[in-house]
Nucleic acid binder design. Structure first.
Length: 555
RNA sequence: GUGCCUGUAGCUCAGCUGGACAGAGCAACGGCCUUCUAAGCCGUGGGUCGGGGGUUCGAAUCCUCCCAGGCACGCCA
């Protein structure tokens, strides 16, 4: 448990017993005592609204209740000041000593600083990207990729047992279409006069795959292509494209714990789960097809799982897949989807419930679409013509770090305007560099320290109470707040919070850097500041690691 | 037509499990480099929180209606 958590818990306990002790207070039902960090720093480090909440049942004005609570508080060595404010808030000002301990805590926990126990080891899976292996990853996938990756990292840090998974849709009609598309391009390359069907994949990459086959084997597969035997083309394209996807994700700093092939569900697992649902009378026959009674669980209407021709729908595989997830022991499953799939949410929730699990065991995060801009103007993309900007292109243009930051800095609910020119700029307008620059500056100080042969004393020998200016205290508070930020971010499944916090921490450091020269004459002050700088470096490194962004030593 | 997301400063967005005068970055304007990286810091101006009604001691936040934009509504995946 982090230092700050301990203090919060202690304070909550003290408030609770104060309320219980106060004889004049008649409280029947004591709600949990919430501590919040006031927006305005003149309102203390923490505030509680408990007096206002109790006003009703205690039949007393909030301010009077607050006063009573304060009078009955004991054992508050870590509190410097308490006041009643506004309509009945109680504001607490922590004494500054505890803040210095944070520096010690960071040093001790190092890479583990920020690690919490919110998740209590709960097994949780985050499934993201899961793009069909029928083409390269593009910008839409990229956002989901970073959101999923960072969210998983945050949950891991918050104490969940997290697994990152990619679901490969390698079993549907689209795979045959992929094979056919490549086969036809192959024929065209060999001067056969054939037309590409309307629904075929028409991206340049299809022709490139066909070209590879021509280069390797000439017209060896021409007869098969003509006869519509697509297996070789399909499997060749599939493997190549999947390899490309893996390579792209790898370049983006994303590693999955598991790659799950849809094919492994066909057809045993699908039949199994269909039989189970049938036994539960949740699947019925109509118009020659089998329908899942999703409307019974809040969906608009029932959905086909086995088509008239006997083949399973995408949903059928998804039912089997999610059954499998829970069977593997995941208590909670998070799916990160593009917003264009939101129509699918209700039926998947229904699936989970039908299988006998809590609806909450499936959480779906929808990431809104990305608009790529260049100098403020939209980059044209036409999916139809296969003309889209790939993940690879973007990384190549702006770099991994900037791309990751931009994709994760906004709430997933918010449309994202991604300006390529801005992401590339090495200037004040670019938040990525701002954060990395803080780290580089720290490294620069440390380099100076080394050059001058200054020894960094062990913590016991250092008087941290030398740190007294506003900039120093503020920086200390940001550092102390980090574990709480992780917990909040994990709880609300909101990765963008950590991107913002990184910026805020960097800002606190830059202010400190400008106001407090580190290598000063006063040796004690210098050493205390050096310790603060080291602690800041540690937290920045942890944060950047979490975001999957590098921490350069110089810029 | 139905459902989901969005509408907050000139621009891009936080805040939205209700709290104390609404925040950040950029843009605009004005300052700061003889010492650790000015990719930085300090300051100023700027908002009927899309609109109406309601709940509450208290609403950007909850409910409701309306307006605007995006997306989705297949025996496709």
């Amino acid at each position: 448990m982090s230092l700050i958590r301990k203090l919060q818990t202690r304070l909550q306990g003290e408030i609770k017993s104060a309320i219980e002790t106060a004889e004049q207070l008649e409280v029947i039902d004591l709600p949990p005592i919430k501590l919040e960090t006031p927006r305005n720093e003149n309102h203390g480090d923490y505030a509680t609204n408990i007096a206002m909440i109790l006003a009703g049942q205690a039949k007393m004005p909030p301010r009077e209740i607050a006063q009573l609570i304060i009078e009955n508080l004991t054992d508050l060595d870590f509190i410097a000041k308490i006041e009643v404010a506004g309509p009945g808030f109680i504001n607490f000002y922590f004494s500054i000593d505890w803040l210095y301990d944070v520096v010690v805590e960071i040093e001790e926990q190092a890479d583990d600083y920020g690690q919490g126990d919110l998740g209590a080891g709960k097994k949780i899976q985050v499934e993201f990207v899961s793009a069909n292996p029928t083409g390269p990853l593009h910008v839409g996938h990229s956002r989901g990729a970073v959101v999923g990756d960072v969210l998983a990292n945050i949950l891991q840090t918050a104490g969940f047992d997290v697994s990152k998974e990619y679901y490969i849709n390698d079993a549907g009609n689209q795979m045959d279409l992929l094979g056919r598309s490549v086969a036809i391009r192959y024929q065209q390359l060999l001067e056969e006069d054939v037309e590409l069907p309307e629904d075929a994949y028409r991206g340049e990459y299809i022709t490139e795959l066909a070209q590879e086959i021509v280069e390797q084997d000439g017209d060896k597969y021409l007869a098969e292509a003509k006869a519509g035997q697509l297996e070789y083309f399909r499997e060749y394209a599939y493997q190549e494209l999947l390899d490309q996807i893996k390579a792209d994700l790898n370049n983006f700093g994303i590693k999955f714990d598991n790659w799950f092939s849809e094919r492994t569900l066909h057809s045993d697992k699908i039949e199994e789960v269909a039989a189970k649902l049938k036994a539960d009378q949740l699947i019925y026959e109509q118009d020659g097809a089998l329908w899942f009674k999703s409307s019974k669980f809040g969906d608009d209407k029932d959905r086909v799982v086995i088509k008239e021709d006997g083949s399973p729908t995408y949903l059928a595989a998804d039912i089997a897949y999610h059954q499998n997830k829970y069977q593997r022991g995941f208590e909670e499953v998070i799916n990160v989807w593009g917003a264009d799939h939101h129509g699918y949410v209700a039926r998947m929730k229904a699936v989970v419930e039908a299988l006998g699990y809590q609806r909450e065991a499936l959480q779906i995060i929808l990431v809104q679409l990305v608009t790529l801009l260049r100098d403020g103007k939209q980059v044209p993309m036409s999916k139809r013509a296969g003309d889209f900007v790939t993940m690879r292109d973007v990384i190549k243009e702006v770099g991994k770090d900037a791309a990751r930051y931009f994709y994760v800095m906004r709430s997933p609910d918010s449309h994202l305007d991604f300006d390529l020119e801005l992401a590339k700029q090495e200037s004040t307008e670019n938040p990525v560099y701002y954060i990395q620059y803080a780290h580089a500056r720290i490294c620069s100080i440390l380099e100076q320290v080394e050059e001058e042969g200054i020894e960094i004393d062990s913590l016991e020998e250092i008087d941290l109470s030398k740190l007294t200016t506003e900039a120093e205290i503020n920086l200390l508070k940001e550092l102390a707040d980090y574990p709480d930020q992780i917990a909040k971010s994990a709880e609300s499944r909101a990765p963008h919070h950590m991107a913002r916090f990184a910026h805020q921490l960097a800002s606190a450091f830059h202010t400190f850097y400008n106001k407090c020269y580190v290598l000063v004459e006063d040796r004690d002050l210098m050493k205390a500041r050096l310790r603060l700088v080291l602690a800041t470096k540690q937290v920045l490194v942890n944060l950047l690691e979490l975001l999957g962004i590098s921490a350069p030593e110089n810029m």
